[in-house]
Design a protein around this nucleic acid. Structure first.
Lengths: 333, 333
DNA sequence: CTGAAAGCGCTTACAG
DNA sequence: CTGAAAGCGCTTACAG
């Protein structure tokens, strides 16, 4: 592999001059530029990015941490991040396994050891003690935030979205509405729970204990929740799930118990993963702008890398309540 | 940020000694080691991986290129790759956009500029003129191969799998079987087509022209194919799709035309993405070991990095024909 | 406009 | 067992 020295020698100039034409800028004569270009073409020279990174102290690399890329919530976000990063000439280093602080912390150390310029952290726990200063590089939080984190955040207003869901269900005549929540350390799930409670209370509706279940956002948790709700002392007429995966499980659990959706029971999910729109599913859900969440978080990170010193922001994107076939009027009492 | 020099100074040794204890090996006295460990702890020193990479000429980084991470076929593969890589102390640089040679080539250049140690390339075109030598780093092909590529390949025997599908459908009494293929430059799709033809011919069944459709592996292509097949001069009793996404579209297209599955029409997919197992879907399909494809391709790449000089291999993994609810006996003639 | 020199932070023969 | 020195391939003041 030819180095910058080889090119310089062949072009009859110094490495500094080659470096200058490489970066396009700087004052370098047309004649030098031509000689260098010719030498580059002749040698097939390609700059060594690692050497450049060592010298410039920037790697043009972003670190991305997702809990689990095979959860359909994340690929779309990852795509938004990767494409936006690449458009700005950044690469993304990809890691899975963020559902636990120790592992996340290891990945964070590792990424900073690798000198990434910034980090995008999706779906972290509320109790993660992360301060930006600690890591020396900008960090952007996506989807879930942590308590006391002094970091930019990209997501939606989960509380408002949950309120919208409940208002919609009430408008369809539902009064007995169950909620299947996510992990207790998820700010997103907590926001949805809060919105649910508020809207129910404001409407003067009962918050029956049996109607408050929770799971780990897996399909199986939904199946289980459906079974329990069906045999509840007081069976609800609608179930609001904190995510689509559980909602899918709820749908199947309901079918197993021969409860007809939406005639006997309405089901609402959250997230808007593509599966929810399948003809065989047709889940009513809160659609989050996943690609955009990825794109915006990357743009925000890039701003920080540009030196934007403004205080941390919460970027709340628009969501949409997509009404499909799993919800309808409450059954007559 | 403290450097190795700072640690050396504090420990009263040379940077070379610090480097030695850092890498765990080498002959270094217990006394030196202790002093170095103490200095590392005191300074919070973390080695600069970029500097190390420049010197050792290895970045412990793998490049991964997928056409589209939001296609549910890839996240599971990516997970297998990332986890296997990380277990061996490698990072993965992640890029999307491989459905076109020019872009793929750009990414390949970029990755080699970045000095990745090896590259995993998923689903490339048959006509891509890739030679390993050209790139200077080992490349592993996953899912699709290219003509004349002198590279390791990880995938399944698509031809055999397609034959299994047809044999199964024949055993259910089907004779009029349509095939919806993928892109003509996909070795995987071509293998499936070949298996279909062979098995049909060997069974003495007709290969009616109208029954040979193709698409770009998108849901919409499936919907369209279903519409066409339903109004075909001679309507088939079974449709074999080259992938699950199109099969999902076929299912919905059939429903739109009020064709009942599987009573009037059987449908078989290919890939085994998780959606196919949903209760509302229950697609009969050829399940590929996606995670394992990722894991094995990474292991093969790691072997090459270890200097394994053996000729390129085709690693063919086991697949499973998963029979669910979209197939059944052929309707009476 | 250009080049010589220093240096980014490591590791690796080499000599002792 | 240990350290001084060189060098990985760039870029960046600096002097001319």
């Amino acid at each position: 592999m030819p180095t910058i020295k080889d090119v310089a020698k062949m072009a009859g100039v110094s490495p500094a001059t080659v470096s200058a034409v490489l970066r396009g800028n700087k004052r370098v004569s047309d004649i030098s530029r031509e000689k260098v270009d010719a030498a580059i073409a002749a040698t097939g020279y390609r700059p060594n990015v690692v050497a450049r990174s060592l010298r410039t102290r920037q790697t043009r690399t972003l670190g991305l941490i997702v809990p689990d890329i095979s959860n359909p919530f994340y690929p779309e976000i990852a795509r938004g991040i990767e494409q936006t990063a690449r458009r700005h000439g950044f690469d993304v280093l990809f890691a899975t396994g963020g559902e636990d602080f120790v592992h996340t912390q290891h990945l964070l150390w590792h990424f900073t050891d690798r000198q990434v310029d910034g980090i995008i952290l999706t779906s972290i726990g509320l109790d993660y003690p992360l301060s930006v200063a600690e890591w020396g590089v900008p960090i952007i939080l996506v989807n879930r935030k942590c308590r006391g984190c002094t970091t930019d955040f990209i997501g939606i207003d989960n509380r408002a979205a949950a309120r919208d869901v409940i208002h919609y269900l009430i408008s369809e005549g539902h009064q007995d509405i169950a909620f299947v929540g996510g992990p207790g350390n998820s700010s997103a799930s907590l926001g949805r729970l809060q919105g649910y409670r508020e809207a129910m209370l404001e409407a003067g509706l009962d918050l029956f204990d049996d109607w408050l279940l929770s799971g780990q956002l897996r399909y199986e948790d939904g199946v289980r929740a459906a079974h329990r709700l069906v045999s509840s002392r007081r069976r609800p007429t609608a179930i609001f799930s904190a995510d689509d995966m559980m909602a899918l499980g709820i749908l199947d659990g309901l079918e197993q118990r021969h409860v007809e959706v939406p005639r006997e029971m309405s089901v609402v999910g959250f997230d808007g993963i593509w599966t929810s729109s399948l003809h065989g599913v047709q889940l009513t859900t809160v659609s989050q702008p996943l690609y955009e969440m990825g794109a915006r978080s990357t743009e925000q990170l890039l701003k920080r890398l540009d030196g934007d010193p403004s205080p941390p922001v919460d970027v709340l994107l628009d969501y949409t309540l997509v009404i499909r076939k799993t919800t309808g009027p409450a059954p007559p009492r």
